[in-house]
């Protein structure tokens, strides 16, 4: 049985029903469920499958394909650190390492307070502000250790869940 709140369940069912082809909603549904469960848990995969009349495997085929669908638990803030060649030129490695060291996590891990996950990421399209990172849909550029500290501090203080594609 579904463990989703009934209103969310209805909302999603309506969203699927409104689509010309239910399958085209699969990524949107995964984003919503990901937001609800914190990440795309096994349960979320099964929920999505039931909503879309797909098998869990069919959902899994997609969920594991995309890098913005998280099949493992993540922190409240997912920090995508750009490792594109331009950011690399500006010593991207040190941004990534600095973040990992600062938060005490390895790549993909969740910080002890459950707040942060650091992931390397494909070029984010913020090359004019290299080195850059993306946190819950917001870009941060021209990074250096001081700036990173300030950003983390700010995020810790004011948590806001602003966008669906984190």
């Amino acid at each position: 049985m579904s463990t989703l709140p009934p209103e969310l369940q209805t909302e999603l069912a309506q969203q699927v029903a409104a689509a010309d082809h239910p399958r085209e909603q699969v990524i949107n549904i995964m984003y919503v469920l990901q937001k609800h469960y914190g990440y795309m848990s096994d349960e979320a995969v099964e929920e999505a499958a039931a909503l879309l009349d797909m098998t869990p495997l069919e959902v899994e085929e997609l969920a594991t394909f995309y890098d913005f669908i998280y099949r493992e638990a993540v922190g409240k803030f997912v920090i995508h650190v750009c490792d594109g060649v331009v950011c690399w030129m500006f010593h991207e490695g040190s941004v990534f390492d600095y973040l990992c060291e600062k938060l005490g996590v390895c790549a993909g891990g969740v910080s002890a307070d459950g707040m942060f996950t650091v992931l390397p990421s494909a070029c984010l399209g913020f090359c004019d502000h290299a080195p850059a990172m993306l946190i819950n849909g917001v870009f941060y550029g021209h990074l250096n250790p001081e700036k990173i500290d300030a950003i983390l501090e700010k995020l810790r203080r004011e948590y806001c869940d602003l966008v669906i594609c984190r």
Partner: peptide, 10 residues
């Protein structure tokens, strides 16, 4: 626009 170095569309 996933081509590294590209951000024109943004």
């Amino acid at each position: 626009e996933m081509e590294p170095g590209t951000f024109k569309d943004r």
